[in-house]
């Protein structure tokens, strides 16, 4: 028969855990609101920017600007966006698995990594010898300026020929419950594959000249894209954590229910046993 004291102790410990997960859920919920507002506000601009760039890439001559030019080389850089903290379900696991699979497929040597988030860095610091840069603690305090810095570094690496293609691996915010791991090509900028290109695609009139406007526009595009990816990831993280903590709280509740039942059964059995002993004792005295 289980020991009453042990069960009591377990119930108490599960209750404590439940309190923590519940608090974490509430904290994530409020952070999620802010992050969600940020990403939903930033999306229209980023989407329109991407649309314009897509049109542009479909129209203009790709030799026009180095950031548009496809190159033969196989040197790839992945910008991997993870979180700094755990307890958020499969949020980081999915990203890491996807990245690791990519490394395995394409060889460790030619794939450079740039990692945001402690979780990603901890995972890859022993597995990859080619981490160019890592950012730890970004989830606590993220600003547009950081996206600008990263975008500028990436553009520079690409222009100088250190890498030939750049992808971003991050969680896209679908809804509070759902995130999707995306591997998105950042550079060179390519037009969408399935675009039904009309036959009479005319080049733009550029004001001022092409180079001047492209330089600025592409720089802006890179920054916007990187910024958006980080916001997506932040919102996804809070969503994932909230969902994970919600189910943890529920599980703890179920566990407490089960334990309470066992506890009551054990207590009842104990009382019954004592009663029987008393009755038996009285009978024996009578006889």
């Amino acid at each position: 028969m289980p020991n009453l004291k042990d069960i009591r102790r377990r119930i108490r410990s599960v209750k404590n855990t439940q309190q923590i997960t519940k608090a974490m859920k509430l904290v994530s919920a409020s952070k999620l609101r802010r992050a969600q507002d940020a990403i939903l506000a930033a999306r229209p601009y980023a989407m329109k920017m991407m649309e314009v760039l897509n049109h542009l890439a479909a129209r203009c001559n790709h030799d026009l600007h180095p950031l548009l030019a496809e190159r033969q080389g196989g040197k790839v850089l992945l910008l991997v966006i993870t979180s700094d903290k755990g307890l958020c379900g499969g949020f980081n696991g999915n990203i890491l698995r996807r990245t690791a699979a990519y490394l395995k497929e394409n060889g460790n040597k030619d794939t450079a990594l740039m990692i945001a988030g402690k979780k990603g860095y901890d995972f890859f610091k022993t597995r990859s010898s080619n981490i160019i840069k890592h950012y730890i603690g970004w989830t606590r305090h993220f600003e547009y300026q950081m996206a600008v810095d990263i975008a500028d570094i990436l553009a520079k690496l690409f222009m100088e020929g250190d890498v030939d293609r750049i992808f971003m691996v991050y969680n896209e915010f679908k809804s509070v419950m759902a995130q999707e791991v995306l591997v998105e090509q950042l550079l060179p900028i390519v037009p969408e594959k399935n675009r039904n290109v009309k036959e009479h695609v005319v080049d733009y009139i550029y004001e001022p000249e092409e180079e001047a406007i492209l330089d600025k526009l592409l720089e802006r595009y890179m920054r916007t894209e990187v910024f958006r990816a980080f916001l997506e990831s932040a919102a996804s993280e809070h969503g994932a954590r909230m969902t994970a903590m919600d189910s943890a709280t529920r599980n703890a509740g179920e566990m407490i229910g089960g334990l309470t039942l066992t506890y009551n059964q054990a207590r009842q059995a104990y009382i019954t046993k004592e009663l029987i002993e008393i009755v038996n004792g009285a009978e024996a005295l009578k006889g």
Binding site: L56, Y204, I205, E207, P208
Partner: peptide
């Protein structure tokens, strides 16, 4: 310079 855009304007990209 200022631009007025009407229906059927030629494609343009400008600052």
């Amino acid at each position: 310079g200022d631009l007025g855009i009407l229906y059927d304007h030629a494609p343009i990209l400008t600052g």
